[in-house]
């Protein structure tokens, strides 16, 4: 393949990665923005979503789409419920002290991961996609007769991958509308701006915390359900999305939704593209160092404005 078609392929793979990453990272960002909690167990909620999707899809016979749609609905709900419970039992009792909550979420990470290993086991298991048509992509080439349309071998994607990108975009827009246009969103933003004031105005801050923590985890689970027909469900699959979400949330500016999405696209694409042309490990080295440097020299993120 020439360079051009190769790049198109890398961009496509990068877009799928970016779409899923944006969903996961927005969940992490929301939890940090509203609750000021750095949730190290976020990747494990992603993993739980994938494993739950496998379990749900398993229990439905017939067309794969039936099981998949059930997973799409129930897996995030289930994971969100578990996270809400964890918030009420653990984090709330710590008074959301930053250091204690980080240590506690590290503990939760191991508990969730190891319990999954004990029950689900160490195997990677696939979930069949609801539809999966192979789509070839054309490429332009200067030939003898001028510009010609060619179909390079290997330059293709699937209908499911395109659907993942579309679904992530729809969910993100819906989330944005919910936060900016609904009463629940208003309460969330009020809590984010000034927790004590919100409490003084009689807003149920404890419930907001529990639900936001559930919502954040649910978004990670939703992202996992979308990706699990492409990757497989495995008990260690939470590590990478956790690290990438951290990178994205920090580069995008902690707690900023638009910045997070922009950074997800940047990181998802560049990670995909660097990984195709160089080594995935090198991409990781560069992005972790980038994050460290951003935090050291530009703590408001690459897209944020400096605080006055």
């Amino acid at each position: 393949m020439d360079f051009g078609p190769y790049l198109v392929l890398a961009v496509l793979e990068g877009s799928v990665q970016a779409a899923v990453l944006a969903l996961t990272a927005v969940g992490l960002s929301l939890v940090f923005g509203v609750m000021r909690v750095v949730n190290v167990a976020h990747g494990e909620f992603f993993m739980l979503g994938a494993v739950a999707a496998w379990a749900i899809a398993q229990s439905f016979a017939g067309h794969p789409a039936v099981g998949f749609i059930a997973a799409l609905v129930f897996a995030p709900l289930l994971v969100g419920l578990i996270a809400t419970g964890a918030d009420m039992v653990i984090l709330k009792r710590l008074g959301y002290d930053p250091e204690n909550t980080i240590v506690a979420t590290i503990g939760m990470l191991y508990i969730i991961q190891q319990l999954t290993l004990m029950t689900y086991g160490p195997d990677a298991r696939p979930v069949p996609p609801p539809f999966n048509t192979r789509l070839s992509i054309p490429w332009f080439e200067w030939g003898d007769g001028g510009l010609a349309l060619v179909w390079p071998w290997g330059l293709s994607t699937t209908s499911y991958k395109l659907a993942v990108i579309a679904a992530a975009a729809v969910i993100l827009v819906a989330l944005w509308l919910a936060i900016s246009r609904t009463r629940a969103g208003l309460i969330m933003r009020a809590t984010q701006q000034d927790r004590e004031m919100a409490q003084a105005f009689g807003m149920p801050v404890a419930w907001v915390n529990a639900l936001v923590f559930g919502l954040g985890a649910g978004l990670a689970a939703l992202a996992a359900v979308l990706i699990v027909p492409i990757q497989q469900a495995h008990y260690l699959m939470g590590e990478e999305p956790l690290l990438l979400s951290f990178i994205v949330v920090i580069i995008g500016g902690l707690g900023s939704l638009a910045g997070t999405v922009a950074a997800a696209i940047l990181i998802g694409m560049s990670d995909g593209i660097i990984s195709v042309f160089f080594s995935p490990t090198l991409a990781k080295i560069l992005s972790t160092l980038l994050v460290a440097m951003v935090l050291v020299f530009r703590p408001q993120g690459l897209f944020g404005h400096p605080p006055r």
């Binding site: 653990i90 240590v103 506690a104 590290i106 503990g107 939760m108 990470l109 191991y110 508990i111 969730i112 991961q113 190891q114 319990l115 290993l117 004990m118």
Partner: peptide, 11 residues
């Protein structure tokens, strides 16, 4: 799943 112990102890 021995790291489960670590998780529980931390929490």
């Amino acid at each position: 799943a021995y790291m489960l112990v670590a998780g529980v102890v931390l929490v």
